[in-house]
Amino acid sequence: MKTTFNVLIVEDDEDDQFLMKTAFETDSNRYDIRFVSDGTQVLANLDGTDFLPDIVLLDLNMPLIDGFEVLTNLRGSKAYRYVPVLILTTSDNEADVIRAYELGANTFLTKPNGHQQLIELAAQIRNYWFKLAKIPTRRLNH
């Protein structure tokens, strides 16, 4: 069983980055968490050579390149094609949900309002994606 997991969080809001970081710190020795603030940083690493995550938490509402375009490029990338992408956004718009799944998102989550709820959500993400679900290993992504 794998002992360390790579998590890429694509989030432009620094407060949300901080909250996500603290939410994952509960079990911090098991996770290598990297943040990028906009889609251009993700697209610069589509070959996966700098950091290939086990999952991606992706915000939709970002400047420059939005989450939908990032998701489209991730699904078209050889390295990221099978990496689970979890949409984590403030939107609860049905059209956004449908579009995200059409583009290949693995799940769509609306950000909770409070820090404690975010900690609980992070615990549920960790439990499901790293304990229950079977996700492709890095070897299968190349």
Results as ranks from 00 to 15, higher is better:
69 E>Q: 14
118 L>N: 06
124 Q>K: 13
105 A>E: 10
121 L>P: 02
110 T>E: 07
88 L>K: 07
56 V>R: 11
118 L>V: 12
74 L>S: 06
89 T>K: 03
76 G>M: 12
100 A>T: 04
61 N>V: 14
86 L>I: 15
77 S>E: 02
118 L>A: 09
128 Y>K: 13
70 V>W: 08
87 I>N: 00
107 T>Q: 03
132 L>P: 00
71 L>M: 05
107 T>P: 02
112 P>N: 04
76 G>F: 15
126 R>W: 09
92 D>L: 01
82 Y>T: 09
82 Y>C: 04
115 H>G: 00
66 D>L: 08
113 N>Q: 10
131 K>T: 13
55 I>K: 07
82 Y>S: 01
106 N>W: 10
108 F>N: 02
91 S>K: 01
103 L>W: 01
94 E>W: 14
94 E>S: 08
106 N>S: 09
69 E>N: 11
96 D>S: 04
92 D>Y: 10
87 I>Q: 04
76 G>L: 13
64 L>R: 15
120 E>I: 10
66 D>N: 14
117 Q>N: 09
109 L>D: 01
121 L>R: 12
116 Q>F: 14
63 P>F: 12
137 T>S: 09
102 E>A: 09
74 L>H: 08
74 L>K: 08
135 I>K: 13
104 G>H: 12
81 R>V: 00
79 A>N: 04
96 D>C: 03
131 K>V: 11
70 V>G: 02
129 W>P: 04
121 L>H: 11
79 A>P: 00
136 P>G: 06
